[in-house]
C-alpha cells in the first residue's frame, strides 16, 4: 500500500447551510450544527424504516465531517482551496529555505529540551506561535478576496503546509507525543 492521492469533495459549507468563506462565526457554526444534528441524528430515526435509518446515518456522517473541517481555521482554508481545485502542497514540495529553517528550529528545540529549562522551550514556542498567527492572518486576507489570483492561492497552499508544521512543532514542544 502506498499513500493517497487527492479526491474531490462536496461543499462542506453547503452541508451546514452556510455561505462559503474563510470568515466564520464560531457561534453560528455551532448553532447550525446543533440544529441539524437534532434533525438528522440516527437516534431520531431508531423507529423508522431501514431506508430512513440509512439516510440518517449518511447525512449525519456528512454533517459531522463538515463541522469538524469548518471548526478549524487551517482545515477550513484547505477546504476552500480544494473547492477552487487547488491541491494541498505536500510537505516535501516546500521551498528549500523553509525546510532549512524548519531543521534549524527543531535543532534549537532539541537543545532547549536537553538543557532542561522550561523557559527556553516556552520562548521558542512563543516564536512559532507568532509565525503561526501571521500565517493565519495572511491566509484570511487572501481568502477574503472574492476571486484571488492563482499565485495568491498557491501562496495559501504553502502557508497551510507551514501551519501543519507549526502545529507539529508545538505538540512536540508541549511534550504531547502520541501515547498509548
Amino acid at each position: 500500500m502506498q499513500p493517497p492521492a487527492a479526491g474531490n469533495a462536496p461543499d462542506k459549507f453547503a452541508v451546514l447551510g452556510l455561505p462559503r468563506g474563510f470568515e466564520l462565526e464560531a457561534r453560528q457554526l455551532d448553532e447550525r450544527f446543533r440544529t441539524l444534528s437534532r434533525k438528522l441524528h440516527p437516534d431520531r430515526f431508531a423507529r423508522a424504516t431501514a431506508r430512513e435509518r440509512r439516510f440518517s446515518l449518511e447525512q449525519t456522517t456528512l454533517l459531522n465531517d463538515a463541522y469538524r473541517t469548518l471548526q478549524d481555521p487551517a482545515r477550513r482554508a484547505e477546504h476552500l482551496l480544494e473547492l477552487r481545485g487547488v491541491r494541498p502542497l505536500s510537505d516535501t514540495a516546500m521551498p528549500e529555505e523553509f525546510l532549512e529553517e524548519a531543521m534549524a528550529d527543531r535543532e534549537k528545540l532539541l537543545e532547549a529540551k536537553m538543557e532542561g529549562g522550561k523557559d527556553g522551550v516556552e520562548q521558542l514556542s512563543a516564536g512559532i506561535r507568532k509565525k503561526r498567527d501571521a500565517a493565519l492572518k495572511e491566509i484570511a486576507s487572501v481568502l477574503r478576496d472574492a476571486s484571488p489570483q492563482p499565485a495568491a492561492l498557491s501562496r495559501v497552499s504553502e502557508l497551510l503546509a507551514r501551519l501543519r508544521y507549526y502545529a507539529r512543532y508545538l505538540d512536540e514542544a508541549m511534550g504531547r507525543a502520541p501515547e498509548l
Binding site: P3, P4, G7, P42, T61, N64, D65, Y67
Partner: peptide, 11 residues
C-alpha cells in the same frame, strides 16, 4: 464525533 466515515486511496 460519530457517526463518521473516512476514505483513503491507496495504489
Amino acid at each position: 464525533t460519530i457517526p463518521t466515515s473516512a476514505t483513503q486511496e491507496f495504489t
